Amino acid sequence: MTRKLIPGILAMAAIVVASNILVQFLFGQWLTWGAFTYPFAFLVTDLMNRIHGPGPARKVVAAGFVVGVICSLIGTQIVGEFGPLVTLRIAMGSGLAFLVAQLVDVQVFDRLRVGSWWRAPLVSTLVGSSLDTAIFFTIAFSAALMFLEPANDVSWAGEALPLLGLGPIVPLWVSLAVADWLVKLSLAIVALAPFRVIVTRLTAKVA
Results as ranks from 00 to 15, higher is better:
Trp117Asp: 07
Asp110Cys: 02
Lys59Asp: 10
Ala134Thr: 08
Val60His: 04
Trp181Arg: 06
Ser155Glu: 11
Glu149Arg: 08
Val100Asn: 08
Trp181Leu: 14
Ala57Phe: 03
Ser129Ile: 04
Val79Pro: 09
Ser116Gly: 11
Glu159Gly: 05
Ile90Asn: 01
Ile139Met: 01
Val114Tyr: 11
Met92Leu: 15
Val61Pro: 03
Ser116Cys: 13
Pro162Met: 11
Glu149Leu: 09
Ala157Phe: 10
Arg113Thr: 09
Ala62Gln: 11
Val127Lys: 07
Val108Glu: 00
Phe82Trp: 15
Ile90Lys: 04
Val170Phe: 06
Leu176Tyr: 04
Ser116Trp: 12
Ile169Met: 15
Pro168Ala: 13
Gly64Val: 00
Val106Pro: 04
Val114Gln: 13
Ala143Ser: 15
Ile70Met: 13
Asn152Gly: 11
Ile169Cys: 10
Leu161Trp: 12
Leu145Lys: 10
Arg113Asp: 07
Gly83Phe: 06
Ala63Ile: 06
Ala177Trp: 00
Ile139Cys: 01
Val154Ala: 11
Trp181Pro: 02
Phe65Ser: 07
Gly64Ile: 00
Val183Cys: 06
Gly93Asn: 05
Ile70Thr: 09
Val69Ala: 15
Gly158Cys: 06
Val100Ser: 13
Ala177Pro: 02
Phe98Tyr: 15
Ile78Pro: 01
Gly68Ala: 12
Ser175Asp: 06
Met92Val: 12
Gly83Cys: 09
Trp118Gly: 04
Phe136Gly: 01
Gly64Glu: 00
Val183His: 07
Trp173Arg: 01
Ser142Val: 09
Ala134Leu: 15
Asp153Trp: 07
Ala140Gln: 08
Val183Ile: 12
Ser116Pro: 00
Phe147Arg: 10
Phe141Asn: 02
Asp110Trp: 10
Val66Asp: 05
Phe137His: 06
Phe109Glu: 02
Phe82Val: 10
Glu159Asp: 12
Val108Cys: 07
Ala62Leu: 15
Ala157Gln: 02
Trp173Gly: 05
Pro150Trp: 10
Ser155His: 09
Ser124Ala: 13
Gln77Lys: 13
Gly158Leu: 06
Trp181Gly: 05
Val100Met: 12
Trp118Asn: 06
Ser94His: 05
Val104Ser: 06
Leu161Gly: 09
Leu96Glu: 10
Thr125Trp: 06
Ser116Phe: 12
Val106Cys: 03
Phe137Tyr: 14
Pro162Ser: 14
Phe109Lys: 00
Gly158Ser: 15
Ala120Ser: 12
Pro150Met: 11
Leu163Ile: 08
Leu122Met: 08
Thr133Ala: 08
Leu145Arg: 11
Leu131Gln: 03
Val183Tyr: 01
Ser175Gln: 07
Gly75Val: 03
Arg58Pro: 02
Leu161Lys: 13
Asp180Trp: 02
Ala140Trp: 00
Val100Asp: 11
Arg58Leu: 07
Asn152Tyr: 14
Asp153Ala: 08
Ala179Val: 07
Gly80Val: 04
Leu166Glu: 13
Ile139Ser: 01
